[in-house]
């Protein structure tokens, strides 16, 4: 019976260790995910917080500066009503283009511009035609 106890204690310790890893991982890496409109509705409370926003890149708004290293564009809410200027410095994935649905991760700056650190375009037209 003593052995069984040892194994149970071992199992509990292991489970706690994994749970601890998961908990600290979550508290460090969790990011709120908003629609563009939801972020704007938060107003100044949203400044500086690391968030993900979901919307669409407005066709005709994309400007490439510094030979493509700085991108500036406008993201519009999926409802199409509110829009947000976004800047991104770095290399955008190939699937990023005007009209694409986009999840951008970054912070809203106090001047009302969203500074994106990563762009995750999701392109329903990628494997399947838009219907």
């Amino acid at each position: 019976m003593l052995k069984k106890k040892k194994f149970i204690i071992g199992g509990v310790v292991l489970a706690l260790a994994v749970a601890y890893l998961g908990y600290t991982g979550l508290s460090n890496a969790a990011t709120y995910y908003y629609e563009v409109g939801e972020l704007l509705a938060k107003g100044s409370a949203a400044y500086g917080e690391n968030v993900k926003i979901n919307g669409q890149v407005v066709t005709g708004s994309l400007q490439r500066e510094e030979a493509g290293r700085l991108l500036a564009f406008t993201m519009v809410d999926t409802s199409g009503n509110v829009s947000l200027p976004v800047v991104f410095r770095g290399v955008a994935p190939d699937t990023f283009k005007e009209g694409a649905l986009l999840v951008a991760e970054g912070q809203l700056l106090t001047d009302g511009i969203f500074q994106a650190n990563t762009l995750l375009p999701k392109c329903p037209s990628k494997y399947e035609p838009e219907s």
């Binding site: 994994v18 991982g25 969790a30 995910y33």
Partner: peptide, 23 residues
């Protein structure tokens, strides 16, 4: 996690590569 957090707390919270790497 995005689905779980939306169901439990009504907000979508997503975890990125740092979570997976760290754990």
């Amino acid at each position: 996690f995005p689905i779980i957090s939306e169901a439990v707390r009504g907000v979508k919270v997503s975890v990125g590569p740092p979570f997976f790497n760290q754990v």
